[in-house]
Structure formats: C-alpha cells, structure tokens
Simulated scan of single mutants.
Amino acid sequence: MKQLPEGALTEIAAYFQVLAEPTRLQILNILRTGERNVGELAQMCGFTAANVSRHLALMTQQGLVERESRGTSAYYKIADPAVFALCDLVCGNITRQLDRAAERRAAFTPPV
C-alpha cells in the first residue's frame, strides 16, 4: 500500500471489516451465482430474514452489493465482481499456508 491518509485507511478497514464475518462471506458466495431476494438468501444460509437483511445493509453501505426493489421484494446482487478476486487471493494465500504447515508436520511422521 502506498502512503494513504488516515481517512482512506479508515475506509479500507471498514471494507475489510465487512468481509471479516463468515455469514457475509456466505451471502457473497451465494450471490456469486446471481441475484437473490432476502427470503431466498435466508433460506440458503439457514438464518432468519432479519439477520440476513442486517448483513445486507452493511454490505450495501460498503458498496459490496446493490439493492433493487421489485414490488414487495428487494433483490441483491454483487456491486463489484472484483470482491471475488480479492477473496480468491486470500483463499489462495490460506491454502499455501496450510500446505506449508502440512509439509512441516509431515517431517515428524515416521515413514511407513
């Protein structure tokens, strides 16, 4: 990261904070396949509609998802698909860390 003012760092931290919640990651993963309404997301996640709505409000505020009203339902979709590139980058990093840890543990396993 280049030198950024404190306000920018605060915004970046807020964005990452939204991604630091497993339920929100689950919602993002579902929305990866297409838009859904709150009821569909709640059913697919196994949470209440109120809980999912609260998470979606934060995600909308940070610009991760967009909301569109249709009749009595609100539909949500990914606002910026670049969030998946970020998530894929992090997943790759975690996979590499786990692989290295497994290799270190294997050094202590006697050959069969």
Rank of each mutant, 00 (worst) to 15 (best):
A74E: 02
T10D: 07
M44I: 06
A42D: 07
S69P: 02
P5A: 06
A85T: 08
V38A: 04
M1C: 15
P22W: 01
T109Y: 03
M44D: 08
R105Q: 02
M59V: 04
Q97C: 08
A79N: 02
R100E: 10
G7N: 07
P81T: 15
P22Q: 00
R32D: 09
A49T: 12
Q3C: 06
S53L: 04
T48L: 02
P81C: 15
A101F: 14
R36Q: 09
R67G: 11
F84I: 08
A74S: 07
T72F: 02
I27K: 03
L28E: 09
V83H: 01
I78K: 00
T95P: 04
A20L: 06
E35T: 11
L56Y: 06
F108N: 08
Q97S: 10
A49F: 06
Q61C: 02
G34L: 01
L4G: 05
S69A: 13
L89S: 12
E35G: 14
M1N: 15
A85R: 10
G92W: 08
R54F: 13
E68V: 14
P5R: 02
L25T: 06
A20Y: 05
F108G: 11
P111W: 07
R67D: 14
A74D: 11
R104Q: 12
A85E: 02
T10G: 00
A13E: 10
D88C: 04
A82P: 00
C45N: 02
Q17V: 05
T10M: 04
P111G: 09
V83D: 09
A102W: 01
T48D: 14
